Amino acid sequence: MKKIFLTLALAAGAGLIHAQEARTSSLFLQLQERDSLLFDRGFNHCDLSSYDTIIAEDLEFYHDVAGITNGKAAFIASVKNNICGSASKIKRELEPGSLNVYPLFKKGVLYGALQEGMHRFQVLENQQWRRVGIARFTHLWIRENNTWKLKRVVSYDHKAL
């Protein structure tokens, strides 16, 4: 047991183990901005052009209710038809304080990050927003040519309120 603890302590000290990013770090703030582009601009305001530069062509989206969506074009079409084309106005909000970011390194070079959190959904009824659900999400962001691309999404634990 002592050997395991010593090995982990040495690895952490050598920078081989990375914990959650500080909420003030450049990486955290960059991915928080990407979350806003993905959801506030794309999902809430139906500005689907915001997806052009942040979503990988080979996106895989796993949803515990709607199933699997493969590819950027299919994802954008799904948002366009099911969110933006819905008779009801739907809004997504990040649950305050729930966003976490974990960097991914290969030989000391940052190549990606996991972003996880919780979000709540509201629907507009009679000029009032009513909270209707909450869920968890995990996003895999990959750095391609100094640009963060959303590569994999797992959206799960959807609960109605």
Rank of each mutant, 00 (worst) to 15 (best):
G15M: 01
F61K: 04
K3A: 14
L37P: 05
A87I: 06
D35P: 04
F75G: 03
L59T: 00
L48A: 03
L6S: 08
G42A: 03
E57R: 09
N146Y: 09
N145D: 15
A11H: 02
Q20M: 13
I90D: 02
S155M: 09
I134C: 14
N145L: 12
L161T: 10
L37W: 07
A56L: 06
L59A: 04
H139W: 03
G13T: 07
N81V: 02
R152C: 06
Q20P: 10
D157Y: 11
V65C: 12
I134S: 14
E57L: 06
L140V: 10
S88N: 13
Y102I: 15
H63D: 09
L104H: 08
Q30A: 09
M118R: 15
A9S: 07
A22Y: 07
Q115I: 15
V109M: 09
I54F: 05
V65Q: 15
R143P: 02
S86T: 02
E60W: 10
A113L: 07
A11G: 02
K159C: 12
L10K: 11
G97F: 12
L10H: 14
Q128C: 02
T7R: 08
V109C: 13
G108H: 07
G117F: 00
K106F: 13
Y111W: 13
L38H: 10
Q128H: 10
T53G: 14
R130I: 13
G85D: 00
A12W: 13
T138E: 04
T69K: 11
L140I: 12
R131A: 10
R143I: 13
A9C: 06
A113D: 05
F5S: 09
P103K: 05
D52C: 02
S36C: 13
L110K: 09
L37Q: 15
N126R: 03
R23N: 07
L27G: 00
Q128P: 02
T24H: 00
S36D: 14
D58H: 05
H119S: 05
T147S: 14
F28C: 04
I54D: 06
W141L: 01
F39S: 08
P103V: 03
K149I: 00
K107L: 11
